[in-house]
Design a protein around this nucleic acid. Structure first.
Lengths: 286, 286
DNA sequence: CGAACCCTTGAGTCTGATCAAGCATTGTGG
DNA sequence: CCACAATGCTTGATCAGACTCAAGGGTTCG
């Protein structure tokens, strides 16, 4: 301990090349309506007046592997993912990168840069993606023009914020196996929210990305997948995941103190009184 | 591995008692103006029309240890911290709690619940706190009435979002020592942003809270503090932290491959070409 | 076919979680 | 005012989960 000199950085993700400096020249397509994006963000498109609903918005297409925007670059527009998955990374001082989020359909990108005027993460496409581009000026105009859009927008940002809390919960301590189980469940619920089957996932990111996101080594991700498969929770073939036993998977995702002694389970500073059942409405987080 | 049965959950935080079911009866005080809260959230209060600036807003006071709201409870109002520090936790299925954020002056609480209509975390006061209470209806009214408020509000939410990315970066992998170093720097920059000295910190949370937040054991936090002190970065006396050698601390907060061999430093999939200097504006994240 | 990745598996080492005491502080009640 | 209990903080010893290093199959692509 005293000789920190020898400390080796065992940060999970292996080094990545500097992003393929492709300045990302996404092709624009004039498509999409206000009704579209409102629904996308979780608002109620029905309530939009007809004239608003027909407003046309710009769409951007980003090809696999390309960068939509770079950390530190000036913030011109927000983006809302319409299809595909984006990977948000922060560049470490050493050039290592840390995956801080995966953004899918309905997620807002760039909002976190509003307060500083610069992007706080780099966003790359894990697969072919289409996104609504909302120049800040346009954003303001829309929010003023359409109360429905404004509400939906806030909804989307709120969802994003909650997602980050959830991912904090994922990365929080616990063993790597539990972390991965939670990750799979998270992906599953996202799939479900998009109308897809919650049991069959096609991961769009490689092991290393998952590893970086969960803050473990990519070899550990492999091994944990293996373990979960052995347990009968999953069937794993490369990036194809099938959830075999959902309850078991959930169980794995929990504290996993499972069988055996649970001696120290009792909160050690439990007050003398019997502490009645939880006095507030049970949390109903995913 | 095959026998996960024996896996022990080594999640960092020790068990906590169920929150002191105190229903938190905060005392209300009629204080605070719109100009106040706008400045607090990072907006420009100067630009507010005089009549708007004088709008009076409700303040809530929460005493140390008390709960402002519980995870899962219906969302009535957002809150903006004016003084003090709040601790945001998520309750694990087993009753363990995970600290997901510390909220200080200017931070918005509850916004993440907007999309679901329920609080997604529990908020407790680490010390005596005062907060602006913004009932949702009031919030909408203010946003419509005052463009300045609206802008400031978005700013604050944006800041919060970025903070979460930053804390993701903190928890991300790396050794516990590095994590703690980053935590201290983070606290320091927060102090600086509030006009306080960035070298002298009075931590408002106990070791266990830090441990939970960073996803390590509380003993490890102690040891890491010790190590950083030995290295000459810090002086630590209980919750009083003095940063002695800021550059050294920063260095510790980095990848910390420090001296010795740095063989594998070269990104292993560096493209054949010499890869010129970073093509985009250097990231300037704290 | 080779190059470049991605994924998996193995062996060895080390950080950090656990369990267990010990001080230091605080505050409560006799 | 002083003991006693309750917490918070620190330190030690032990053990195992996970990181690193290394190497081998599988794919995809030019």
């Amino acid at each position: 301990m005293s000789s920190t000199v020898h400390r080796i950085d065992f940060r999970a993700p292996a080094p990545r090349p500097l992003p393929p400096s492709a300045p990302a020249a996404p092709s624009f397509e004039v498509q999409g309506t206000l009704a579209d994006i409102v629904a996308l963000m979780g608002g109620n498109a029905q309530t939009l007046p007809a004239d608003e609903a027909r407003e046309v918005l710009a769409l951007v297409r980003v090809h696999e592997g390309l960068t939509l925007f770079h950390e530190g670059s000036p913030l011109h527009s927000l983006h809302v993912v319409r299809s595909g998955t984006m990977r948000c990374v922060k560049l470490d001082d050493d050039g290592y990168e840390q995956v801080v989020a995966f953004a899918g359909r309905g997620d807002v990108l760039g909002f976190d840069g509003l307060s500083s005027g610069a992007q706080s993460v780099t966003a790359l496409a894990l697969e072919e993606c289409t996104l609504y581009a909302l120049p800040l000026q346009e954003l303001r105009r829309l929010r003023i023009r359409s109360a429905g859009f404004d509400a939906a927008f806030l909804q989307a940002v709120s969802r994003r914020l909650r997602q980050l809390f959830e991912s904090a919960e994922m990365m929080a301590a616990v063993s790597s196996e539990v972390r991965l189980a939670r990750f799979v469940l998270w992906m599953s619920s996202r799939m479900a929210a998009m109308g897809h089957s919650p049991r069959r996932l096609r991961l769009t990111m490689c092991r290393r990305d998952i590893a970086s996101f969960l803050a473990v080594a990519h070899e550990t991700v492999s091994r944990s997948f293996g373990t979960l498969a052995e347990l009968g929770c999953l069937k794993v073939v490369n990036r194809e995941i099938e959830i075999i036993d959902m309850p078991l998977l959930r169980k794995q995702a929990r504290g996993t103190r499972s069988a055996g002694r649970q001696a120290s389970t009792r909160p050690r500073d439990l007050p003398p009184d019997p502490a009645p059942a939880s006095p507030w409405p049970a949390a109903r987080i995913a």
